[in-house]
Simulated assay, not measured.
Amino acid sequence: MAPPAIEVRDLGVRFRRNRRGRRSFKDLFSDSSRRARPGEFWALRDVSFDVQPGESIGVVGRNGQGKSTLLKLVAGVMLPDEGHVRVNGGVAPLIEITGGFVGDLTVRENVKLTAGLHGMNRAEVDRRFDGMIDFAELEDFVDTPYKHLSNGMKVRLAFSVVSQLEEPILLVDEVLAVGDKAFREKCYTRIDELLADGRTLFFVSHNERDLRRFCTRGLYLSKHHLAMDAPIDEVLARYNSDHSSP
């Protein structure tokens, strides 16, 4: 049997509320206390689950419950204070989607730089370049500095590049909440294609329509813990029940 695409065990991560609560250098290498120090709080605690290859997982919860933090831990851009995350396979991260692009470089230069940093070799970038630009609808802006693009153009470019990566695991954080309706439909179609190709999806969103469309299973984060792991319809029903108006 193939190992899980994502394995999370006893995951915990702490943040500080202010400078006064900052941990010392010594604290970073000490696990003598599992209790948050003054000025600190647990963003996630005792979270465990597996994601099998090809599964489509939706992560739900109110703001501030650790959804985006969990996604960053899976992406490897953050490290946990407790437990571990193991990812078996490369990830294509649609997280803080316009991050990593360089304002003074042109669209052409940014595409080649970003795709290269994500593991595409020069031949692959050259082969896919026209398709990425066409998807982003930026044919007339290829040699325009990135900083002169509108926010919508930046989002289109970032989604176009990252969605072309051939990594087996796709991490998505609210990216479909941006852009105009026509471009969102293009994104929906592209994600459908990736799922049909057997990719694993780990998807954070507040949009129930998107969650029901793409996900079969849900993880519900509440009070910084994993409150429920079940089929997506059951998770959304529980979430709505917990947060319905009196």
Results as ranks from 00 to 15, higher is better:
residue 89 G to V: 01
residue 110 N to V: 11
residue 145 P to S: 01
residue 233 D to L: 02
residue 199 R to S: 04
residue 241 S to W: 00
residue 62 R to Q: 14
residue 13 V to E: 01
residue 36 A to G: 15
residue 10 D to S: 14
residue 207 N to W: 05
residue 155 V to E: 05
residue 174 E to Y: 12
residue 222 S to K: 14
residue 165 L to W: 10
residue 225 H to I: 13
residue 158 A to R: 05
residue 190 R to N: 02
residue 196 A to F: 00
residue 165 L to T: 11
residue 124 E to N: 04
residue 102 V to K: 04
residue 109 E to L: 03
residue 185 E to C: 07
residue 116 G to T: 09
residue 51 V to D: 12
residue 197 D to Q: 09
residue 21 G to V: 10
residue 243 H to S: 06
residue 208 E to D: 04
residue 146 Y to F: 09
residue 213 R to M: 08
residue 5 A to S: 11
residue 127 R to D: 08
residue 203 F to I: 10
residue 19 R to V: 13
residue 200 T to G: 07
residue 154 K to A: 05
residue 13 V to I: 15
residue 52 Q to D: 10
residue 204 V to T: 01
residue 98 T to A: 07
residue 177 A to V: 11
residue 72 K to F: 07
residue 60 V to A: 07
residue 99 G to K: 07
residue 133 I to E: 06
residue 46 D to E: 02
residue 77 V to E: 02
residue 185 E to H: 14
residue 68 S to T: 14
residue 26 K to T: 13
residue 61 G to L: 01
residue 244 S to R: 12
residue 199 R to C: 01
residue 216 T to R: 13
residue 111 V to N: 06
residue 181 K to V: 15
residue 79 L to T: 14
residue 111 V to C: 09
residue 234 E to H: 09
residue 8 V to R: 03
residue 116 G to A: 12
residue 213 R to C: 05
residue 183 F to Q: 00
residue 217 R to V: 09
residue 147 K to W: 04
residue 131 G to K: 03
residue 49 F to N: 01
residue 96 E to V: 00
residue 18 N to G: 11
residue 46 D to T: 12
residue 81 D to N: 07
residue 61 G to P: 02
residue 29 F to N: 00
residue 158 A to T: 12
residue 210 D to F: 05
residue 216 T to Q: 07
residue 154 K to S: 15
residue 93 P to I: 00
residue 132 M to G: 01
residue 103 G to F: 01
residue 40 E to A: 02
residue 139 E to Y: 00
residue 92 A to E: 10
residue 178 V to P: 09
residue 162 V to H: 03
residue 240 N to C: 06
residue 192 D to V: 08
residue 25 F to R: 15
residue 136 A to F: 10
residue 167 E to S: 15
residue 1 M to G: 15
residue 136 A to D: 10
residue 45 R to H: 14
residue 142 V to K: 06
residue 76 G to C: 02
residue 88 N to V: 12
residue 239 Y to T: 15
residue 48 S to A: 04
residue 241 S to P: 09
residue 34 R to E: 12
residue 120 M to W: 02
residue 176 L to C: 03
residue 118 H to C: 01
residue 51 V to C: 12
residue 235 V to M: 11
residue 118 H to G: 00
residue 46 D to I: 05
residue 2 A to E: 15
residue 92 A to Q: 11
residue 104 D to Y: 13
residue 99 G to C: 09
residue 164 Q to P: 05
residue 133 I to D: 02
residue 51 V to G: 09
residue 188 Y to E: 06
residue 202 F to D: 11
residue 193 E to V: 08
residue 162 V to P: 15
